[in-house]
């Protein structure tokens, strides 16, 4: 067990690598109830989120559709990354990180006041992520026949209220699956029913190797308030169009974009043996240094992979200082693995 944002959470239930493969090949379940669910309600909730987030909730036209993006401060630093679901014209639901919960809620409330938006933390909800190629079918088997049909009809990145649960086709593993928000009192029963349906219990360790293979960022490791989205591999989540949308951090990001980002977040593939870890120093051939922000052993590729922040001019290869020895690594474009398939070699 480890402390994670104030929650006692298991790194693994059995073998971390076996849990990882279960998600790539079958189905695994993660207890992600530490994630903070926040309901945002009010007639002006959409313009509020268009001010609060660097991605544009104006893109959400169909009810249930989800959007991933960053909440920035005025300097363009990342306060948190989050998912927001458009439920009704006056109701959105955000899911933010556990470790940033207090500052996120304070920031959201501070800005919500001017829009008359009500901010309600849903501490009553547990959240289970069921992930893997067999995850949707196995999770749907716990629902009523009509509920199962409704869940299986969800398009990627959509969520819907089903049988008293909120079921979303989202995740943090690079596999298909659901994230299910349900009353906390039901979580244990559902967890055991998922196990009985052949879904493997998975801990934080496998969650980290899976998200890293999928090239997904972890707040606090790959980005934080000291970094902006363009140097965090998150430029794709910044909606600069339409130009008149005045989101927090916009001016800072436009200035950064005008002079060109100095650093970038890249994927690294270690050429030899060993394991890349966060904070190891990265040396660029023609001078300059970077740092690994997340590194691990990839169970799918059976070699080490990492995300690293390096000078913007870095080319195709670097050296990494692993405990005093320099090792060759290749710069690749994440993701490393998606839907069970290696995308780099």
């Amino acid at each position: 067990m480890v402390d994670f944002g104030g929650w006692d959470m298991p790194l693994q239930y059995g073998s971390q690598i076996a849990e990882h493969h279960a998600v790539r090949r079958g189905a695994g379940v993660f207890d992600v109830s530490h994630m903070c669910v926040v309901d945002l309600e009010g007639a002006r909730v959409r313009p509020f989120l268009q001010r609060l987030l660097a991605n544009d909730v104006g893109r959400l036209k169909a009810p249930g559709k989800a959007l991933y993006g960053c909440m920035l401060d005025e300097t363009g630093g990342v306060i948190d990354d989050l998912i927001v679901y458009f439920l009704e014209d006056s109701w959105f639901r955000a899911v933010v990180n556990a470790g940033t919960r207090e500052k996120d809620l304070a920031w959201i409330r501070q800005h919500a006041a001017g829009f008359g938006v009500d901010v309600a933390e849903r501490a009553d909800l547990a959240m289970l992520a069921v992930q893997g190629p067999e995850a949707r079918a196995k999770a749907a088997s716990l629902l009523s026949p009509a509920g199962a049909a409704s869940a299986l009809a969800l398009e990627p990145f959509f969520g819907r209220e089903i049988d008293g649960w909120f079921v979303a086709r989202t995740g943090y593993t690079g596999e298909d699956g659901f994230e299910i928000m349900l009353p906390g009192t039901e979580a244990e029963r559902v967890w055991k029913a998922l196990n009985s349906a052949g879904v493997t219990s998975c801990g934080l360790g496998a969650r980290d190797t899976l998200r890293l293979e999928a090239g997904m960022s972890l707040y606090g490791s790959d980005m934080d308030e000291g970094t902006h989205p363009f140097e965090s591999g998150l430029g794709w989540t910044v909606a600069l169009e339409p130009r008149e949308r005045a989101f927090i951090g916009r001016e800072a990001l436009e200035a950064i974009r005008a002079r060109g980002p100095q650093r970038k977040l890249v994927g690294l593939l270690l050429e030899g043996r060993g394991v890349l870890r966060s904070h190891q120093k990265v040396l660029v051939p023609d001078g300059g240094e970077g740092e690994i922000t997340s590194g691990t052993f990839s169970p799918t590729l059976e070699r080490s992979i990492a995300l690293a922040r390096v000078p913007a001019a870095a080319g195709s290869s670097v050296q990494v200082d692993i405990r005093g020895k320099l090792h060759e690594a290749r710069i690749v474009r994440p993701p490393f693995v998606r839907h069970g398939k290696a995308l780099v070699s």
Partner: peptide, 9 residues
């Protein structure tokens, strides 16, 4: 010797 797991070296 160095023994390295997924978690740590």
């Amino acid at each position: 010797a160095v023994v390295e797991s997924v978690k740590a070296a």
